[in-house]
Design a protein around this nucleic acid. Structure first.
Length: 274
DNA sequence: CATTACCTGCAA
DNA sequence: TTGCAGGTAATG
């Protein structure tokens, strides 16, 4: 579900509520597969008593910086959400991890589809997570030249390349389609064959769609909520994604939906031709 | 590169 | 009942 803008909002809305708080206990881990490292029993023991010192985001991971050099990394995958609740709120059946704070409040990791994941990482583990991911597309370092370098020599289609987290981190199916619409690029265009001008438009498009989504609190198709339980509104501003059969806002041609890289893919067949 | 798997719920 | 969903990893 969540891509960079949604994960950023999830992290910020959570972090602002809980920074400085301390985890008392880990409760209700009824789907232990969600804990990737360390073993669930050790995860529970090590988290107890940790202070939450800060927060951040890397790719689609939410990072809670803890004392003792530990980082709690949380990935929402398709349907996860993190919300903060008073002491007496009962979790529902899709809440698979609860962090009880020493002030009584609870953080719920709610995840209908159970794809979400948690890792408790030391400095080396955090470095590995970092190294596994590519450029942050909103960073200063992500220049047009950087993007051109990433595309150079790669014959694969541009859309699956945009989804490859090891190259560019944080873009998912929505914002890949939206960025390609912005840049008037066909999702199957070979990455290495994009013109200099098209690459510049793609760079601008990626940043514009992510910034707009951030400004709108992310996109909520179904499950996404920030940590206050609020939906985003960016789904009301899509140009191509989820708009099959509706007119392209630029040229009026019907948006079509196909499958590219095993993902539903929406584009304008008239003005996305390069 | 394509296919399958992981899960549940919802719309067609 | 089937197919599909914002993600990723593990297979041929």
């Amino acid at each position: 579900m969540p891509e960079l803008p949604e994960v950023q909002h999830a992290a910020d809305s959570l972090g602002i509520q809980i920074a400085g708080a301390r985890i008392a206990t880990v409760e209700r881990l009824d789907w232990p597969r969600m804990v990737e490292t360390p073993a669930p029993e050790e995860f529970i023991v090590r988290l107890a008593g940790r202070e939450i010192r800060g927060w951040g985001r890397r790719a689609k991971w939410i990072l809670l910086e803890l004392d003792g050099g530990w980082t709690l990394a949380l990935h929402l995958r398709m349907s996860g959400s993190l919300t903060v609740h008073p002491a007496d709120t009962e979790p529902d059946r899709h809440t698979h991890l609860v962090l009880r704070l020493t002030d009584g409040r609870q953080i719920f990791f709610h995840d209908t589809r159970k794809f979400g994941r948690a890792r408790l990482l030391d400095a080396a583990g955090l470095a590995m997570l970092n190294d596994a991911h590519g450029d942050e597309p909103l960073s200063e370092a992500f220049t047009v030249e950087r993007l051109a370098g990433l595309l150079r020599g790669r014959q694969r289609a541009i859309k699956p390349l945009l989804l490859d987290q090891s190259l560019i981190a944080g873009i998912g199916n929505i914002y890949a389609d939206e960025a390609l619409w912005c840049a008037r690029i066909h999702p199957l265009h070979p990455a290495a064959e994009l013109s200099t001008e098209a690459i510049a438009d793609l760079h601008a498009g990626i940043r514009a769609v992510l910034r707009q989504a951030l400004a709108n609190g992310g996109s909520t198709l179904r499950d996404y909520r920030n940590s206050y339980g609020a939906r985003g509104t960016n789904q009301d501003h899509f140009h191509a994604y989820d708009r099959e059969g509706q007119p392209c806002p630029r040229c009026g041609t019907m948006i079509v939906k196909t499958v590219v890289a095993q993902r539903g893919t929406h584009y304008c067949p008239a003005c996305q031709r390069r």
